[in-house]
Every structure is written in C-alpha cells, then in structure tokens.
Design a protein around this nucleic acid. Structure first.
Lengths: 208, 208
DNA sequence: TAGGCTATCACTCATTTGAGTGATTATTAT
DNA sequence: ATAATAATCACTCAAATGAGTGATAGCCTA
C-alpha cells in the first residue's frame, strides 16, 4: 500500500505540483490537498494519512495550530513542516506543537521523498540550517548577561533550587543578612522585584 | 585544500579503518587520530582541524568533556559525535556541550562523508533516531503528571511568572484566600514546600 | 592615594507567605 | 442517594521576605 499523504498549502500552483510530483511515484499517494487547515481535524480524522506536509502561512489558521490539530486528532500521523520561514520563533513553536520534521521550501523537491521515508522510519527530517538551530538551542550559557558577581551567582544558584535565605546562608557559610544583601543586588541587576521572579527569569533565560 | 579531520576513538581497529576510509578521498585528510581525548586541548590548538569525530566512551576523559574542551579551545571546529550510545542522558549532555552532530556507529561509513559535508555547510548531521529524540524533547506538556485541576493550573501559571498572591487573585477574579487555598493544594501535589520550589519544579519539568 | 567594586554583616519595618483549620456550594461518580 | 472532588472564601499565627539604610574591610585601578 502506498504512503498516504495530505497537503496543506495555500499556494495553488505549488500544492498542485507537489501532489503531481508525489503521485508520480506509485509508492506515494496524495489523498487530499487543501489551501488551508481550518478543517484539519475533520480531514485528518477522515483520511487518516501517514504523512502531512504543512505550510505555515495560510489564510485562517496558521500551520502551527494546524500541527496541534493534526497531532491531537491523530498522533501517529507524521507532520512535516514545509515553509519558507526559518525564524526561531515559528520554528520552535512548530516543534513544541509536535512537528516531526521541518523542511524549508528551498529544499530540492526530490529530497521530499527521502524526508518522507525518514519520518516514516522514526527519523526527523530537517533542512541543514534548521537542524543547526535546533542543536544550538541546547547550548545554554548566557555569558553572564547581567554582570552577576561570583558570589551573587552562588546565591542565585541556590535560590533557584528553592532554598530559603536561611539555608542559603548555611550552605555558603555567610550571615543571613549577607544573603539578603546579595539578593537585593541580584534583584536589581535582573530587574525583578522578588525571588520568585528571579527564579523564573534565571530558569527561562538559563542564567544559572 | 582537503577538509582536515581529527579522530578521537579508543577502538584501534575502528579508528584506523575510519582514517583509512576518510584518507581514501583526496578531499579529506585525517591529520590526527587518538585513542583518548585527555590532551584534546593541546591537540586541537596545534592541529586546528575543520572537523572532529568524537567517540564517547574512552579511557580517561569521556567524549562529553572532549566536546567541551574542543569547543572551548576552538569553537569553529565542528564536532560530530560518533558513538553507540543513544540514551537521552548522554545525548543531551553532548548537545549542551556544543556538539554539532551526532551519529550512531551503525551509520553506514559512506554516510560519514555526507555528514562531514553537512556540518561544514552549517548543518547538524544526526542519525534518524537521534533527530527524533531531539525533536521530541521540545514536546513539553507533561500530561498533567501531578493531577493539577484546571484552576490550580491557572494559579500555577501566574505564579510561575512571578506574580504575588494578590495579583493572581485579581487576575483570576477570586479572593486572596482562595488563591492561597489553591496554592496549598498545588504545593501538596508537587511535593514542594513553597512557591519558589514550585516555580523551579514547574519550569524544570515544563508543567506549565 | 583616592575612588570604585565586592563581600561581608546589622537593624528596622511592613508586607507576603506557609500552615493549620474550617466552611459552603456545585458537580460528578458510584 | 450518597460520597468524593473541585472551587470558593475566611480567620489566625508565625515565619519569610523585600526595602531602606548604613557600616567595615579587602582589593584593584587610575
């Protein structure tokens, strides 16, 4: 049985040529193609495709919510984004929504067959730039963006683990009021007003 | 000028056959091969290779600290992990250390040339399983692991942004004491003792 | 050597928070 | 119909925290 594919792509010419290309190989069959993903839930439930190729910028719902809908309806359907966008914002939104691959439209069309095979074999096809961005996102290290001193960093690290001032003081062998003194400077430097905000900022921006 | 490559791999037979394979193509040259990465800093500083192939399990320092050393010494050298390990633990440690690619040893050797080209072109070659794991890591949403109710989730979301009880109460149109009531249940369910710990746990485990 | 930065500690005061206890209402499940 | 759960609100009390102010000592630099 050929691999069944559904396309969501608002550029009619592109969508039709993609369908033509994929259908030209008997191992693949496009069972549906749409210029928006507003009804993605019903479509996916009905067609139950193996693979979805999803554009991002479409009238109505974006491809990002498209991924969410597909995955909620049928998690086993593999979704490959197919878009011109390579900004971090949209990229990571798609990944968080559950995309299984991310190809830029400059990808040579022949590579689509490889990508579909790859995703069916449990892989995650990505354009080179995209893969690099994804890997880079793991390299934390904000080069001490807020100019915290060594001691302030010590205090912040313990604070972020949820320790109270008293415990931090014990752990670092300093007086209770010294910790509070450091905390005040930390809050100033991070532009926050309390420990809770500092923890949130430190974790979100990987300052620790 | 051929692409210069350094190998760190403690299996002598494998290392030698890799070197032989890569040297067989005049576009590539292995300028050094080592059975451990203890002296990686000096080696990289001296040889300044374009690409490093790095094993993980080696006598002395692991390939994980190997990546760190290479990247600290010469960030522009691309490091491709080449290992049998595909556990999340080591994988993400390597990525955080700055690895630019991650290939499993079951990769067909011919694919090494592609991978090296890919990494030189700003890509991030990964074995399919690895790429999938990496993408999956973005799908947060621990399916309500701690059985928080809808309202508790509302409160936690606001808490995590650093809001005070008073602000949360206003935002959710509930009484101050209602928020405190929800917070107590949240702390119970998360097994924490205070808001700071709750924030840390929520962010670390992506509960929100 | 004078000024700046860091690390240290102290004291006050008002606010915030955690913990304990208890209660009402509505919805859901058995 | 009864029990369980969720959501709501109230009150107390002690502890933790933030903000303000100030001080001392060591180190580095201009």
């Amino acid at each position: 049985m050929p691999v069944s594919i559904v396309l969501f792509e608002d550029n009619d010419r592109l969508r039709e040529s993609l369908a033509y290309l994929l259908n030209s190989d008997p191992d693949y069959t496009v069972t549906g193609d749409y210029n928006n993903c507003n009804l993605a839930v019903d479509i996916i439930a009905e067609l139950a495709p193996d693979v979805v190729l999803m554009d991002i910028d479409m009238p109505g719902k974006t491809g990002i919510s498209g991924v969410t809908m597909v995955k909620q309806t049928r998690p086993e359907t593999a979704v490959i984004m197919y878009t011109v966008f390579e900004d971090d914002e949209r990229l990571f939104q798609c990944l968080c929504a559950g995309a299984n691959g991310y190809l830029l439209k400059k990808t040579p069309p022949a590579r689509l067959f490889d990508a579909i095979q790859e995703v069916l074999n449990g892989g995650a096809p990505m354009s080179p730039n995209i893969a690099r961005k994804v890997l880079n996102s793991f390299q934390q290290k904000t080069d001490n963006l807020y100019n915290l001193t060594d001691r302030e960093t010590d205090v912040l690290q313990l604070l972020v683990k949820g320790n109270s001032i008293k415990v931090i003081a014990d752990a670092l062998n300093m007086a209770f009021d010294t910790v509070r003194s450091h905390l005040k400077k930390i809050y100033l430097k991070l532009h926050v007003n309390c420990g809770k905000e500092a923890i949130a900022k430190a974790l979100n921006e990987k300052l620790i």
